[in-house]
Amino acid sequence: MNANHGDPGVVQLLGQELRIRDAMNRRVVTISSRTPMSELRPTLRAHRIAGIPVMDDGKLVGVISVEDMVNWITDGAVACPVAERMTRSPRALYADETLVHAINEFRKFGFFHFPVLDRDSGEVVGVVTREDVIQCLLKRLEIDYHEEGIRHYRASHIFEDIVADKSALLFHYYIIGQDFEKAGSSSSGLKKTLQRLGIHPDIVRRVAIATYEAEMNTVIYARTGELIAKVDTNQIRVEIEDFGPGIPDIAAALKPGFSTAPDWVRNLGFGAGMGLGNIQNCADEMNITSTVGKGIHLEITIAINKERVKYETKKDR
């Protein structure tokens, strides 16, 4: 797998217009530097957070994260206050800074969260994570989608404001084998997201069909799998990795009609040996590798052809 794999949910996508205060979580949980490390875990867990600003007398003095706690445990969990394990003089962001700035800071420092300060008072007014930024951007898109009555955003529109050299959206889904009820929900989720991003409906449909077929293969044959979609200005690239029996002879499996599907699968209308062919038809590029006994790694690339993307409004319909 590529490097993205161990890095789920990391998104680098920006808005000039949106401020950090639009994305941040305002329910700030803080901790004193004198708190014993042993009390950190319940706090992190209770609030389901990855890091906490450390405050003494109303001043930000550090940040303590899950990673710090794990390191502390690895080092033998010797009793000590948070002050000894926290990151001192932490990087913080201001609530009125742009999301673009936040993204660049996330990238520069490799952090997953920042305390957010009010510029005037210097007080901690929130915490912002990479996920918060993604959620904020996606949510905002949906708001625009309704308010402006724009049916299809231009795919490039969302990327126009990006100042970074290279930007992409990453979406990560887990697939559970043999779960026929949930099957297709990842593809469905991805489809909805792509629609929201304003990708042209024909492109969205091709991605949806290809990922759905791949997802069904995973559900039918494998124990578990993962689907990662990377969207940038030029293309959508989907990687599906499953953990299952694998395919002994890929060339044979690519022939139309080839299938090893059991009867229950055929009776559900699948397993007629068309799946991989369908993926190939939808994709501009498809690459499949497999290790027998381990699983399948499938890569699908679909180009976003800007010329074909329309800017359609309600009155065009």
């Binding site: 026929f180 099957a183 297709g184 469905s188 449909r205 949806a208 069909i209 759905y212 559900l268 209308g269």
Partner: peptide, 13 residues
């Protein structure tokens, strides 16, 4: 067919 995937497939296309 009547199962859930009839709707999923219809949705995809």
């Amino acid at each position: 067919l009547t199962h859930l995937q009839t709707v999923r497939v219809a949705e995809m296309v």
